[in-house]
Write a protein that binds this DNA or RNA. Structure first.
Lengths: 221, 221
DNA sequence: GATACCGTTTTGGGATACCAAACTGGTATC
DNA sequence: GATACCAGTTTGGTATCCCAAAACGGTATC
């Protein structure tokens, strides 16, 4: 694999994994040294990550994008629009076997699954469901939105009950999709997204002080 | 302005203005010479334009993205989802004065307005309407989708009647939005987008042979 | 005439050198 | 003690070099 893709992937992982905190300054030279690449692939990676919203410009330099509560709310609205459109398409033509694959993803999580895995599967559920729509643009929109939400969801304080409720909602959405009931799937998905947005923003707003103490820039709604 | 932004802007204009045809090969060295910049800003511009979908990779090199009829159809579905969501938000809270500004844009076109201007205003209508939603993500989604549609719309054969009908539909959408009638605005917008997609794809499919003769790569649906 | 082969050229990926602007730390001044 | 100022350093933007791989072109072979 080329250095460019390598730097991009590793840097993205460090940002999404919060190894580099939201709001931290980045210098091209630091990245260069950290990954043993020269500035050319580093710059390519930064340009790509900028379009993903993971890094941004801060005057002349680069900054890991802060967690922005107002932005999270807007993303949720965006997500709702594209995910609902996608699931409606899916209801029209998706095969039951494709839905089984997604359901199996949910099944793969149980009591002794690490928290990190629950997190990943919870995102992939939405991404894979959007992929079934067959519309590349809806799919990419959902994938990119989930990427932007990823760090915030990682910081969210979620109890067992909330996690179980989310899984139940996921299953209900799949059930409606399997029946081809577009209106019901859309309604359930919409409710799910709004609810999860509210919990997310509330949790982060409550934790804002603690998060800042950990060095994470969190800007209010 | 920096060379980087300069190269990006000029190259984008050449592509959108069809001065470089869909499907044409690009070499970094040609761009370098054409705009008098070195390869570093050229590569940055190409990376940006790649995420906009205007250029793509072809093996190891770069290619101006072909007109892809299947893609145009998918973009229309995507547009419909985000634009409808945006106009619904707009109906909730937009001020009449903001709508007046958009209506004035439409008014600015008359019989002796150059075709190029009609084209631009027709796109800006949708972009500015989305901006009124106040949601940055919906706005960017609409703007990017319109950018991707731009070249195809430019190649579309449109008669006076179709253009007049589109303008009437634009006005009707604004009227509904001004009244805050979200359902009606959404219905009108949705119909407008579907209709304009059908005319666009039909026109290009009919002209496909002629367009290819002009050196434009047009891939079928 | 078609085709397989091989040397040349071109091209994108990467590394590095240079510069001007921004930043930093310390000092002198009030 | 606060502040204005200046030299030194850092940093992103740009230009340029190098390289391996791919594209190209000519030639020999069948």
């Amino acid at each position: 694999m080329s250095q460019m893709q390598n730097v991009e992937r590793q840097l993205r992982e460090m940002i999404l994994g919060l190894e580099i905190g939201p709001g931290e300054k980045l210098t091209e030279r630091w990245i260069e040294g950290r990954f043993g690449a020269s500035r050319t692939p580093v710059r390519a990676a930064l340009l790509r990550l900028e379009t993903e919203g993971l890094v941004g410009r801060d005057g002349r330099g680069w900054t890991v994008s802060p967690i922005n509560l107002a932005e999270l709310e807007q993303i949720a609205v965006y997500r709702e629009a594209v995910e609902v459109a996608a699931v409606r398409l899916t209801c029209m033509h998706a095969e039951s076997s494709a839905i089984d694959v997604i359901e199996a993803m949910l099944d793969s999580c149980d009591d002794n699954t690490p928290r990190e895995e629950w997190h990943r599967v919870g995102m992939d559920f939405h991404i894979e469901l959007a992929r079934l729509s067959g519309n590349e643009f809806l799919f990419r929109a959902v994938r990119d939105a989930m990427t932007r939400l990823s760090r915030a969801r990682w910081l969210e304080v979620r109890d067992e009950a909330a996690l179980g409720r989310a899984w139940a909602e996921h299953r209900a959405i799949l059930a409606a999709a399997r029946l081809g009931d577009a209106d019901e799937a859309a309604r359930l998905l919409s409710t799910h997204i709004v609810g999860s947005r509210d919990r997310l923003v509330t949790s982060l707003a409550n934790d804002r002080r603690g998060l800042r103490a950990r060095g994470f820039a969190v800007v209010a709604a």
